[in-house]
């Protein structure tokens, strides 16, 4: 009898706090609903309200993590990283810590501070708590390389996860499709316009070659007819100008073409790729 009574007493004591807890969870659900409805600004307000009343810090990890996600969705990356860091600090399990820290890496990737993202990947790599997470770390490392426009290293890193990894194949393909900027420049030194033609800009290359031929002829002709002053002026102001222009153009065309190839792959990643993205 006595035991039963004391059990009842305990129940009596616990029940209100159980309900208080549920009021926190109601607020959490409400804030999360706003997040799911993409009302990120209001969602942050409600999560902040939750954190304000949550004196025991039960929701510190989860609320801060979603606040970070809200800021990330609004492309306010500095704030996002701030709140992901709070989440990482308040994490209760290695799993949670890993989630918050990879979110920081992903935000750095989107912010294009890829050096920082790579550095954070290295930090996770050396953490003994995450030895079984190598693949996931490499996955984000690969994305960081992609956003740094370094497809060679990206393909290398994705290859470590799986030699036939979808993103490894994409990165490899992108890297192969690119033209060599140095080569384009060097052949333009030898034959003005050749670099442009190598990059696929035939008309521009031919016109460059034409100008150089014409200006070269004028210059030579002037010297041949003993008009040295004309020769120097035409050589300096016309020939040299188009000669330099051809080399500059070759470089620009090569860079532009490479950018186009990169952007094509990036567009695919953003719009069609089904896997998890930063």
């Amino acid at each position: 009898m006595k035991i039963k009574l004391s059990a009842i007493l305990i129940y009596l004591l616990i029940s209100p706090s159980a309900w208080a807890q549920s009021s926190l969870s109601i607020q959490f659900d409400y804030a999360e609903k706003l997040f799911n409805e993409k009302q990120y600004f209001d969602s942050i307000t409600e999560f902040k309200r939750l954190l304000f009343i949550d004196s025991d810090g039960q929701y510190s990890y989860r609320a801060n993590l979603i606040i970070g996600k809200c800021y990330k969705e609004g492309a306010k990356f500095d704030d996002a990283i701030k709140y992901f860091s709070f989440a990482a600090k308040n994490s209760n399990a290695p799993e949670e810590n890993f989630e918050a820290r990879t979110q920081i890496i992903r935000t750095n990737i989107l912010r294009r501070t890829t050096d920082r993202a790579l550095q954070l990947c290295d930090e996770l790599d050396t953490d003994p708590a995450f030895v079984d997470k190598k693949d996931e770390i490499n996955y984000w490392r690969g994305w960081a390389y992609i956003f740094a426009d370094d497809w060679k290293n990206a393909s290398l890193v994705f290859g470590r996860i799986d030699p036939n990894h979808e993103l490894k194949i994409l990165a490899e393909k992108t890297e192969k499709a690119k033209v060599s900027v140095t080569f384009a420049k060097v052949i333009s030194y030898i034959l003005p316009g050749a670099g442009a033609i190598y990059c696929g800009n035939f008309l521009s290359g031919l016109m460059s070659a034409g100008w150089n031929l014409l200006a070269g002829y004028w210059t030579m002709n002037s010297f041949a007819e003993n008009r040295a002053f004309d020769g120097i002026v035409v050589g300096e102001l016309v020939w040299l100008r188009f000669y330099r222009g051809a080399i500059q153009n070759a470089e620009e065309f090569a860079v532009e073409k490479n950018l186009k190839i990169s952007n094509q792959s990036l567009r695919y990643l953003q719009n069609e790729y089904k896997g998890i993205k930063p």
């Binding site: 029940s15 209100p16 309900w19 208080a20 549920s22 009021s23 109601i26 309200r49």
Partner: peptide
């Protein structure tokens, strides 16, 4: 008590 608590807490926020 539970009902009281819930409404109380719910309103409270």
């Amino acid at each position: 008590q539970a009902i009281y608590c819930q409404s109380n807490q719910g309103e409270n926020i």
